[in-house]
Design a protein around this nucleic acid. Structure first.
Lengths: 166, 166
DNA sequence: CTTGGTGCAAAATCTTTGCATAATC
DNA sequence: GATTATGCAAAGATTTTGCACCAAG
């Protein structure tokens, strides 16, 4: 009678978790919502609303979902802690899986825009101490480290052309 | 011959720094830009574009500046590392002073929205190590710790009504 | 007189919303 | 049958841009 209590404990599927969340609000896991949550969790890549829309709003089979519904669902998925915003790129919120995935942070390259994940328990621990010192009840954090990634650092011959500044 | 090399070393005023930045681009510190940088550094509060605009676009004296110019200037001030984005609230980017102010991070209350600053060198140090491990050339970071602030934590009589999720 | 700058209004983006229709309990 | 959901198009909101006129070197 021991549940896996590692960093990640996934007892139910994302869809199921979504259903549970919806239930608490008296809402239903409809076909569209189901399609969305499945698509979102089909890949572990970071994504934004537009990418999801382009994948779902253009389906020819019966799995097409409208733009509005996708936006509405993304808000719910975030509320339900299934996904979370990690950054903002090109004026769009970038999401990632929050459910079933360990806490981590990101190195964001200012040049090529690449997102590199890393884990550092020392940071979480430090934050817990800091929060408690301020009487702050922490429930999460978002840490974006900006700079130049390994590839973009190397000026030599393979100098990246794409400098989308800022 | 020793410059103040503490966390903060301000040898020139924000305006002067702005002027220097502009010079490197062959641009000038105009009267409007001057007004903007002075207004921005007049208070050390966090602010967003709209707040700045409401303060500057409604002046009756000769210190009015247009919306466009303010947006254009904010981009430059950010580029020049005079200000930086700290968060996003109500769909707006929130800025704070970056120049002449020590590195710090924020505790953001999900309930009342309050921003509390804190400093933790341990985090910067940890990040430097992590970055170097990834061959990443860090030039800054943004850390938002979310949760409930001291005031909003206290359930006693003023029990928060809003109990969301999970 | 040539380049840079401002202001206005229109445009561009991303996101939300009103409403009619459709599905579900 | 009442409530919830979807899709569309229109509306909202913030930020950007084209353009004419002004300013500075």
């Amino acid at each position: 009678m021991q549940a896996a209590l590692a960093n990640v404990s996934v007892s139910v599927s994302p869809s199921e978790k979504y259903r549970e969340y919806l239930a608490t609000k008296g809402l239903r896991l409809t076909r569209e919502r189901s399609i969305i949550v499945e698509e979102v969790f089909a890949y572990h890549e970071h994504f934004d609303a537009e990418q999801l829309i382009s994948r779902l709003a253009q389906k020819t089979d019966g799995r097409r979902v409208s733009r509005s519904t996708i936006y509405r669902s993304l808000s719910q998925l975030e509320e339900a802690s299934l996904i979370r915003k990690v950054a903002r790129q090109e004026d769009r919120d970038v999401y990632e899986h929050d459910y079933g995935y360990p806490q981590h942070d990101h190195l964001i390259c200012r040049k090529c825009g690449s997102l590199t994940e890393f884990q550092a328990s020392i940071i979480s621990k430090a934050l817990e101490e800091i929060a408690s010192k301020h009487g702050f009840r922490m429930d999460g954090h978002r840490l974006e480290v900006t700079g130049l990634c390994d590839a973009c650092c190397r000026p030599p011959e393979s100098r990246p052309q794409k400098l989308n500044l800022l």
